[in-house]
Design a protein around this nucleic acid. Sequence first.
DNA 1: GAGACATCTGACATCGATGTCAAGCGCAAA
DNA 2: TTTGCGCTTGACATCGATGTCAGATGTCTC
Lengths: 342, 342
Amino acid sequence: MKPLTLKDVARQAGVSPKTVSRVINGEAYVRPEVRAAVQKVVDALGYRPNAFARELSSARSFLLGLYFDDPASAYAADVQRGALARCRALGYHLVVEQVTRDRTGWLEECEASLRSMRLGGAILTPPLCDWPELLDLFARMDVAVVRISPGDVDARAAAVEMDERGAARELTEALIALGHRDIGFIQGNPEHHAAARRQEGFEAAMAAAGLALHPERTLPGDFTFRAGLAAGERLLSGRDRPSAIFAANDEMALGVLVAAMRAGIAVPDQLSIAGFDDATIARMAWPPLSTVHQPHVEMAAAAVELLTRPAGEQKATPSLRLPYTLTLRDSTGPAPASETQR
Amino acid sequence: MKPLTLKDVARQAGVSPKTVSRVINGEAYVRPEVRAAVQKVVDALGYRPNAFARELSSARSFLLGLYFDDPASAYAADVQRGALARCRALGYHLVVEQVTRDRTGWLEECEASLRSMRLGGAILTPPLCDWPELLDLFARMDVAVVRISPGDVDARAAAVEMDERGAARELTEALIALGHRDIGFIQGNPEHHAAARRQEGFEAAMAAAGLALHPERTLPGDFTFRAGLAAGERLLSGRDRPSAIFAANDEMALGVLVAAMRAGIAVPDQLSIAGFDDATIARMAWPPLSTVHQPHVEMAAAAVELLTRPAGEQKATPSLRLPYTLTLRDSTGPAPASETQR
DNA sequence: GAGACATCTGACATCGATGTCAAGCGCAAA
DNA sequence: TTTGCGCTTGACATCGATGTCAGATGTCTC
């Protein structure tokens, strides 16, 4: 099966290859009749330009890179789904890359990979989006970048984010409104800047309600189930325990849930548990988790959109902020009576 | 930053571009001294051949396609992780594609995408790996294919699989050994051939133990949590219920677990639940799920391996069978006394 | 010493598209 | 009529690599 080329189309349409190229790229300066005629041949033959040749001769690229730290996380799956759907619609392809900082030479490997294959743009997910070396690299290679939920502002890259702080605050306020006074908090992976934002939101809500923050009620975590389980066991051991626990993401909240089950603590009657992210698993738990719905899918789609808008949206590295939704399910409930009396 | 080309290296090394090409491709007929000298320049400059140019001028490609039905499933994440790791090591890149059969013209879209971008090989996951139109397409486009867990044998494509039937049988035997006589079964998505294999294994074990199969104990499912929940609720309603339920995958088993929780049925004391796949979530449940550990990561890695072995392993579409591991956790236990007396 | 042969090497065409540029055309202004 | 300009078109070079092939060595044989 010999590939169909521009030349074939040109011959069939009785014009030069260059004119066909003009038509498929929607360039100006082609007579309407000619354009229509060429288009007809293109459609009839089902011609598709060879992306590699295109890439080689022009500057653009139809490949977007999706960069991950850990492709196994629920978060990664959501982002990928959103990006993939948008790419499909726009005729782009998604190349997935995994990057970790654990080996020396990781940056060189990245650079080598980038130099062997020019990307039309790159989507950086947390925590990669906050590694200055990576941002430098992409800037140096002149590859457009969109950062998802970055920790700071960088003039060189666009960003798609969410008000993590506000969401965490709102969720905490919901717990307080349910009568909870003694709330435990499990921190996220400190590599992710979102972890700090969520903690800030939690603490702001507590302070605003005039509730004291007891240091022993805040435990470190790393966004994994295992960490949530460990922290949950510590928070729930002994008689003096919080009436609610807010874990900085759903996987950890699930860990807390399991810890509570093991300890025979009823959720939500004796203990309320809240997570963050609205991962698929939040709905698969029992009871289903109260959490903050993050529009991961939409954020990824927006990132693709930004990368594929060529000249139209050149207005200096835009930053998009998408809305969250508080999603209260059955893992949270009114604080037990003993608690409200305190 | 102007890209570094073959020509630059050639000039610096004082040879022709073609000779440099020979060196980087490890071709014969280059004097050892020359080879060493060129290699030195390549290393010093950190030269990386442009993959697109390479692809255009030769026949090969460094891009592998990973084809999914549903990229959000836990299964997909595992496969992707395995494939990605292997690709990185081999200097390949992974392009992820999602294909569904819900729109007319899906096949044409696929073909268009393939024609615009030649792939070095494709990995087809279930249920895509059993769509004859797709296999035809890849054969027609002359793209090497590896199928993961296919339902049948196809001379045109290699396969990486697991003994689903044997695993399901072994898991069922384990339940029977625990004293269970009345075991419910929740079928998988009939689009996936593995679903049928697992049911066969279940039924074979039941038959071998001389246990009757009651039609009302086998419910349809589709591998989703929701389906598991629904089936679980049906199986557990009323007084006459099985003492164990075997769901054809972990997500559905999780649904059964939640149904049991809701109904106030203790697991595993009053009900044993088993899944299949050993998805990440199997460990995040409480109690953690007994299941069959499928080597998804290793299977994907093996698939990449098969696709990137060029002439060495041309021995007629090999088929690899990887071993499973029975993983009994806390969601299964001895059958309650009333049951064993039956 | 001539011929045969294996070993090296580079000039050149090629893959399939796009960028550049000049030429041909029609039409309006001078 | 001439000049000038805007529209339309295609010839040709180019992107960065590899395939082909011919020529240049050196070695071995008769």
